[in-house]
Design a binder for these strands. Structure first.
Lengths: 110, 110
DNA sequence: ACAACATTTGGCGATTTTGCCAAATGATCA
DNA sequence: TGATCATTTGGCAAAATCGCCAAATGTTGT
C-alpha cells in the first residue's frame, strides 16, 4: 500500500527492505563485521557480545532469514558465515556517509 | 550495552546502524532509488507514493537526519537529493542476496 | 539413561517505529 | 491582507522490534 501503481514494484522494495532491515541493528552489524573475517560458532560470537545468549541467537536467526548469512551444524555447535562478501561494501559507504556528515558539521562551526 | 569491552566500538556500530536503519523501509528505499536518478521535490515524490504527504515528509526527514540525503528550498518547494552516490552499491548487493536466496530455493526443489 | 553443554524457541513487557489526521509554518500571488 | 499551495510538526493509536527469562531441543561423554 505504499508505492503507487505497481504491485510487483511494491513487493520488490519490500524484499530489499527486509535484507537491509536485517542489518539495521548495532549488534547484527557487529556480527556481520565479525563474520566477514571468517566463520564463527555461536559460542564465539556470544563471547564477544554483552547480551543474553538467546538474544544473540535471535539476531543470528534474523540475519539467516534475510539470506545474508548461513549456518552449518558441526557436532553440538553451529557455525555461521557470510553468504555474500559484497555486504562489506555497505560498511565502506556507511563510513563515507559518517565522514561527510562530520565534515558538514565542521563547516557549520567554521 | 551490547558489544563487550569497547565503549567506542559500541558507539561506532550504533552510528553505522542509524544510517542503515534509515534505509530499512520499503518507502524510504524507493525514495533513495528515485533520488539516485536525480533530485526531486517533495511533491514529485509524494506523487509516486500512495501514503499521506505527512508520512512521506517524515520518511524524508529520517533519511535527511541520517545524512544520506540533503534538501534545498527553492521558492515554496523543497528539493531533495542523494549526498553519497555509493548508496547505490547497496542495491547491487541486495539484489545479489535476493538472487542467491532464490537459487538456494531452486536447489531444494530439484 | 543421565548429566552437561550448545543453541533455539516461546512468551511477555518495554521501547521504537509507522502512518494518519489536524494544525502550524512558509512562500506566492491576487 | 487574505487565499492558496507546499511542506513540516504534534499527537496518538496500531504494529513491529528488542531483550530477558524460562523451557525445549539436540549433542556429547559417562
Amino acid at each position: 500500500m505504499t508505492i503507487k501503481m505497481d504491485q510487483k514494484k511494491q513487493k520488490l522494495f519490500e524484499a530489499r527492505a527486509k535484507i537491509i532491515k536485517a542489518m539495521a541493528h548495532p549488534t547484527r552489524l557487529f556480527i556481520v563485521d565479525e563474520l566477514s573475517k571468517g566463520e564463527k560458532c555461536v559460542c564465539e560470537i556470544t563471547g564477544m557480545i554483552d547480551a543474553d545468549i538467546s538474544t544473540v541467537s535471535k539476531h543470528l536467526s534474523v540475519l539467516k532469514a534475510s539470506g545474508i548469512i548461513q549456518d552449518e551444524k558441526r557436532g553440538s555447535q553451529v557455525y555461521y558465515k557470510l553468504k555474500c562478501s559484497c555486504i562489506l561494501g555497505f560498511f565502506n559507504c556507511v563510513e563515507n556517509v559518517i565522514k561527510t556528515t562530520a565534515n558538514d558539521h565542521k563547516k557549520l562551526i567554521r
